[in-house]
């Protein structure tokens, strides 16, 4: 049955978003210290796909395929994860302030990264290096602790979960601060700080391969809960009375959400704003149906982060601006403008 209202524009919007995504991909692969025309980027990508790299300029192929493309793909994955998990968490917690970092993921990841940097951990068994691995591990540890605290009498309390996440976050942040201030040389402190501010400058195909399975599995779990999240908006008990297993839904969403977010954060550092605001923007324009809201937030999150990373590495080149700074500076004015427009329409 065709849905009227905002939902009528959903199909074309998804198609348009895909086109914009491809354009952003091409643009990000084309712009940089060495400009490569769109046409050449297209040819290189095509050759890369077909495995016929010999037919194109080897220098261009190296820049596009080995340097820029992994970074762009990583931006897409991280942005998509933050958008999807942000949308899902706002629905799960029925709280407009919820974001993917809510249950302690960001502070956990920061502490893990800070430990690895400050104590110069080496994990010979880890192919991506100690920092992402420690960040991933501590992000999951923080989530498990918060979830464990919130389970009282076999039932998760949402309020307790949020409080536990915030409290553990403070504790972990204190640890991170301590490590930063007591690091043996200032260089390490700066490294920790720049990790926390978010960056994709260390992107490699290896990282993409490492996080892809976690991100894919987590995103699949979250997307599978889309319709149930709609019903959950009626309140826990009312949703249960409509046949929903509320406890299991929560567990699945937090498991999937924190796996994907931990994987994303482990390679990008903390990139704020995307997971909070992109879902709000989608909801304001297309309505609250999670079956559309979640995938669209993923697409727009990916596009947004590709473009933000493009700005981060080109605006003050050869210096890089922290990604978290760019997402806030670009995104907040956009969001405020959207809010003002919607306010006129609604009120």
């Amino acid at each position: 049955m065709p849905l009227a209202g905002p939902s009528a524009r959903r199909g074309p919007a998804l198609a348009l978003a895909l086109v914009v995504l491809l354009s952003a991909l091409l643009a990000a692969a084309s712009v940089g210290s060495v400009g490569i025309p769109f046409g050449a980027v297209g040819r290189v990508l095509w050759a890369g796909l077909l495995g016929t790299r010999g037919t194109v300029d080897p220098a261009q192929a190296a820049i596009v395929l080995s340097i820029r493309l992994p970074r762009v793909v990583l931006a897409l994955v991280v942005g998509a994860v933050l958008g999807v998990v942000g949308a899902a968490y706002q629905g799960l917690f029925r709280n407009p302030l919820a974001d993917p970092y809510l249950v302690g993921v960001s502070s956990g990841a920061s502490l893990g990264a800070a430990l690895a940097i400050a104590l110069t951990w080496r994990f010979p068994w880890s192919e991506v290096g100690a920092v992402p691995t420690a960040a991933f591990g501590f992000a999951l540890l923080a989530t498990v602790l918060a979830y464990g605290v919130s389970r009282i009498g076999g039932r998760t309390s949402i309020t307790l979960l949020i409080l536990a996440g915030v409290a553990l976050g403070s504790l972990f942040s204190a640890g991170t601060t301590l490590l930063m201030l007591s690091a043996r040389d200032a260089f390490r402190s700066v490294e920790i700080l720049s990790w926390i501010m978010g960056s994709l400058s260390r992107a490699t195909w290896r990282q993409v391969e490492e996080i892809a399975p976690f991100a894919a599995f987590g995103l699949a779990l979250v997307l599978a809960c889309s319709y149930k999240l709609n019903v959950l908006q009626l309140g826990d008990d009312q949703a249960a009375a409509l046949g929903l297993g509320v406890e299991r839904l929560r567990l699945v969403l937090i498991l999937g959400g924190s796996l994907a977010t931990a994987a994303a954060v482990s390679v990008s550092g903390i990139v704020g704003f995307v997971g909070l605001v992109v879902p709000h923007a989608v909801r304001l324009v297309w309505g609250p149906d999670h079956r559309f809201l979640i995938p669209m937030s993923g697409l727009l999150g990916g596009i947004f982060l590709i473009l933000a990373d493009l700005v981060a590495r080109t605006l003050l080149a050869p210096r890089e601006i922290p990604l978290g700074v760019v997402t806030a500076c670009v995104g907040v004015p956009l969001f405020v403008a959207l809010l003002l427009r919607q306010k006129r329409n609604l009120v």
């Binding site: 029925r94 908006q233 909801r283 309505g287 609250p288």
Partner: peptide, 16 residues
């Protein structure tokens, strides 16, 4: 079941 504690989510349409 219709509960007093049920939430009326403001952005959903009546049909939804």
């Amino acid at each position: 079941v219709v509960l007093q504690s049920g939430i009326v989510p403001p952005l959903f349409t009546v049909r939804e």
